[in-house]
């Protein structure tokens, strides 16, 4: 199954009730999967919206009414969704937003890229907010993290971004779907469907009192702290004795893994840290690794975005190197191998 369809199937099994999309390559298989399968499911809705702006606002409406709602797009379309994501964050509404990102800036290319890291992990739209960002690196993880995204969104009442890329979306891989939501999901208690049996309710963000908004910001901030504590996740690969640790996420980590295996077979002590949550970023783990390991190679398919989080985490400890390929160019494992072995040679590691 291709990665895009995998997300669709996983979303349906996670109990997604509303999908709202707008065509853009390289994620169309997901929209088409939902058109084929979600639209036929009882009580569920599929709409091909008139724009990404409309799509995210339909998600906002569906989430208001208590649905597990989702949209997907790729980089230029995700830029348009930022207004809506900011409102979702402000109104504390759960939603899942998939970005199968492509090269940018501008219309860019339709090839895989990781150039939306800043946008995804810094909120992306206006205002003081965060979204949870999950970075899958395989077909299986696309399925597992899609399910997790819906659960996290509901648990913390927050928009969750799945940051994939063109390659993950197109790759055909066997997948096991481990979860099936009950036929009928309970309606979220704060679902807005009329003031029956309770006083009327208001969902709003606009206020004429800055102190009121400050309180909203504080309450969001406290939740973000809790998420940092409870939900940060990563994969640590052969880091125990590593003298050089590659830090990479998503498809780049998959490419790097091949290079690390080669390095190991040549006797080089190289490991990898792969953040699975990009926000919250596993800063504590990076710091912990720096107690034993001095050298870090950050490898991204962009000009260096996650590297800033690594720098912040390391607080000047260790030595950081960078290798990046922007614009939708797909680096090869042997290219990364070369960088790794050259670095090991320069630093006298064996």
């Amino acid at each position: 199954m291709n990665g895009n369809s995998t997300i669709g199937e996983a979303a349906i099994r996670a109990g997604c009730q509303g999908y709202f999309g707008y065509p853009i390559t390289p994620q169309n298989e997901l929209t088409e999967y939902m058109a084929t399968h979600l639209s036929r499911k009882k009580g569920c809705t599929f709409i091909q919206a008139e724009s990404e702006i409309a799509a995210i606002n339909m998600v906002y409406g569906a989430s208001l009414a208590g649905a597990r709602a989702m949209t997907s797009s790729s980089s230029p379309g995700i830029s348009l969704k930022q207004e809506g994501i900011s409102y979702l964050a402000a109104c504390e509404l759960p939603a899942v937003i998939v970005n199968m990102s492509r090269g940018g800036p501008g219309l860019g290319s339709i090839s895989a890229s990781q150039s939306d890291y800043f946008q995804a992990t810094r909120g992306g739209g206006h205002g003081d907010y965060r979204t949870i960002v999950l970075a899958p690196s395989s077909g299986q993880e696309l399925a597992d993290l899609t399910h997790r995204a819906f659960d996290l969104a509901d648990k913390y009442l927050i928009p969750v971004i799945i940051l994939g890329d063109a390659m993950l979306g197109q790759m055909m891989e066997p997948v096991e779907f481990k979860y099936e939501a009950p036929e009928e999901l309970p309606v979220r208690s704060n679902a807005m469907r009329g003031a029956k049996g309770h006083p009327s309710r208001v969902i709003k963000t606009f206020t004429s009192k800055p102190s009121e908004l400050e309180e909203i910001n504080w309450s969001l901030f406290r939740r973000y702290q809790l998420i940092k504590k409870q939900e940060t996740s990563y994969e640590a690969f052969m880091v125990e004795d590593a003298e050089l640790i590659v830090i990479a996420f998503g498809i780049a980590a998959r490419i790097a893994k091949g290079a690390i295996k080669t390095a190991r077979s040549n006797g080089l002590k190289v490991g990898m840290l792969r953040p699975i949550t990009l926000w919250p970023f596993p800063s504590d783990k990076v710091r912990e690794l720096a107690k034993k390991t001095k050298y870090f190679l950050v490898f991204e398919m962009n000009m260096g975005q996650m590297i800033e989080d690594v720098q912040l985490a390391l607080e000047g400890k260790g030595e950081i190197f960078f290798h990046g390929r922007p614009g939708g160019v797909i680096p090869t494992p042997s290219e990364v191998s070369l960088i790794v072995s050259r670095l090991c040679y320069q630093k006298g590691l064996k």
């Binding site: 709409i47 606002n57 409406g61 009414a65 309710r201 208001v202």
Partner: peptide, 18 residues
């Protein structure tokens, strides 16, 4: 009554979702 704010101009899309 139950009311929910919308972004400027997006009301019809929000209403659609509900």
């Amino acid at each position: 009554i139950d009311m929910a704010e919308s972004a400027h101009g997006r009301e019809a899309a929000v209403a659609t979702g509900i």
